[in-house]
Design a protein around this nucleic acid. Structure first.
Lengths: 243, 243
DNA sequence: CCTGAGGCGTCCCTATAGGATCTGATCATG
DNA sequence: CATGATCAGATCCTATAGGGACGCCTCAGG
C-alpha cells in the first residue's frame, strides 16, 4: 500500500542524473528505460524464473511507477524473446530451453559468430585487442564456485568476450544479430542446470580465438571461433540430464 | 476535431475477427497489435519516408485511437530498427541506407542465409517445396514496371522466397535473425533509388537455389544461396548513384 | 531592417479512471 | 464423485488528464 507515497511525482523530471554543472545531460532517460533495465537485470540474473508471470500492474506497484511505462518496457522486451505475451492474458518469462532449443541456438551462433571473428580480425586495433586480452585474463581469474554468485563474474567475462568481438565487426546488423542470441545464451546458462563444468576447456578455446585474432589471420580466427562453439555444443549436449 | 466521434468505443471488443461459429478465436488481437501492423505496413510500402517524424499523438489521431496503444506499438517497432527513438523527442523513421549500411546488411545476410538454405534442404518436405516453386513462378510472372505499384508483387515474391527458406530451417533463432534483416532489405529497396534492374539475373539465381534445394544436396543449396547474395551485392554496389 | 522576448500550440511522458476479460473458488446438480 | 454454472478479485487494455519542454510565430525595440 505504498501507493501515492510520493504524490508530487506527477511531473516528469528525468534530467537529473549527471550532476554536470551546466545541466547538459548526455543521454537523457525516461522512466520506461529505467523499468526496461530493471526487468532485464531481473531476467538475466535469475530473479525471474522461466514461466513466471510478469504482471504489468504488479511490476508497476513494485517499482512504484504507473503501469504505462511498464507496459512500454515489456513491449520492448517481448521482441528480445526473453518474455512472451498473450493478448489479454499478459506477459510470462519465456519457458526453459529444451534440448532442441539449445541445439538451434548453437546452430545460429555457429552461423554468426565465426563470421564476426573473421571481420573483427580485419578491423582490429590495439586498444580493442587489449580489452580482449583483459577479458580473457578476467575469465581465467574469475572464481568458479558452485553457487550463482560465485560464477557470475565468469559468465559476464565470457559474454563480454563475444560481445567485444561482435562490436569489433563494426557492423550494426551482425551486432544486432549477436545481441539477440547472446542474451539467450546468458539466460540459458542460468537455468540449463549444468553449472560451469567445462571452464578449463572453454578458457583454452577462448585463448586460441584470441591468439588467432592477434595473429591477424582472419581465416584462423573464423576457424577458431567455429571450433569453440562446436565444442560448447558438444559438451552441453553431453551432460544435460534434462528431458 | 473527430475526437469523441464514437464515444462508445471505450470498451474494447477485440474478439471479432474469425467468424468461427463457436466464438473460439484462435489468436485474439488488441488495438496495439493493429496499430503495429498498420505502422509496419506504412513503413514497408513507402508511405513513411526515412527521416520523417512519427508523432505519437499525431498517429493516434490519424488512426482514431488513444496514444497509449500507439506508444506500445512504436516501442516494439524500435527494436526492429525501422524507427529510432530519442528520449523526450519522439520517434523518427530510420534514415536512408548509406552505401556502407548496405554492404553491412549484405555481409550479415551472407552469414545467415546460406546456412538457412543448407538446413532447409535437410528438412524439406514436398509441400514446402511446392510453395517455393510457386513463389519462383510468381517471381517470373510478376510485372516489373517502373512505378512502385508495378513491382510491388515482385518484391513480395522475392521476400517470400527467402522467408520460406528461413521458416523451413525450423529454427526459431535463425528465423528471427532473418526476419530482422529481411525487413531492412525490403525497406532499402524502396528507397535505394535503383528499381528492379536485375530481375533476369536474380530470377535465374533464385531458380538455381530452388534447383539445389530440390536436388537434396545441402552443400549445393548453401553455395547457391551464397552466390545469389554475393551477386546481389555486386550488382547493387555497381549502380547506386547515391553518396 | 534586424533582433530578441513572450505567447501559443504541439509533443512527449506519466498518472489515473474505468470498462472488459481472465482465473480460481464456491456451489449446485446429475 | 464428477461436472458445470456463478461470482469475486485480479489483471489487461484503452482513454483521458495534466505537467513540462520545445519550436514557431508575432511583435516591440534598437
Amino acid at each position: 500500500m505504498q501507493k501515492a507515497s510520493n504524490g508530487t511525482r506527477a511531473g516528469n523530471r528525468p534530467e537529473d542524473q549527471t550532476g554536470l554543472k551546466g545541466g547538459r545531460t548526455v543521454s537523457r532517460q525516461v522512466l520506461a528505460d529505467h523499468v526496461y533495465e530493471e526487468l532485464l537485470a531481473s531476467l538475466m540474473d535469475g530473479r525471474l524464473e522461466p514461466g513466471a508471470a510478469v504482471s504489468i500492474d504488479g511490476t508497476a506497484r513494485e517499482l512504484d511507477v504507473s503501469p504505462t511505462p511498464v507496459r512500454e518496457a515489456l513491449a520492448r522486451l517481448e521482441h528480445t524473446g526473453m518474455v512472451r505475451r498473450v493478448a489479454l492474458k499478459g506477459y510470462r518469462v519465456a519457458p526453459v530451453f529444451t534440448r532442441e532449443d539449445f541445439a538451434d541456438l548453437m546452430e545460429a551462433r555457429l552461423a554468426i559468430e565465426p563470421v564476426n571473428a573473421r571481420l573483427a580480425c580485419t578491423r582490429l586495433n590495439p586498444h580493442r585487442l587489449g580489452e580482449l586480452e583483459q577479458t580473457v585474463a578476467d575469465l581465467k581469474s574469475a572464481p568458479r564456485g558452485p553457487s550463482f554468485a560465485e560464477y557470475k563474474d565468469y559468465l559476464e567475462a565470457d559474454e563480454r568476450f563475444h560481445q567485444l568481438i561482435a562490436q569489433q565487426t563494426d557492423n550494426q546488423f551482425l551486432l544486432g544479430a549477436y545481441a539477440a542470441l547472446g542474451g539467450q545464451v546468458q539466460r540459458f546458462r542460468l537455468f540449463g542446470g549444468v553449472g560451469i563444468t567445462d571452464a578449463e576447456y572453454a578458457i583454452a578455446e577462448h585463448q586460441s580465438v584470441l591468439d588467432a585474432l592477434s595473429s591477424g589471420d582472419p581465416e584462423k580466427a573464423e576457424a577458431a571461433m567455429a571450433v569453440h562453439i562446436q565444442k560448447v555444443r558438444e559438451r552441453a549436449m553431453a551432460d544435460a540430464p534434462e528431458e
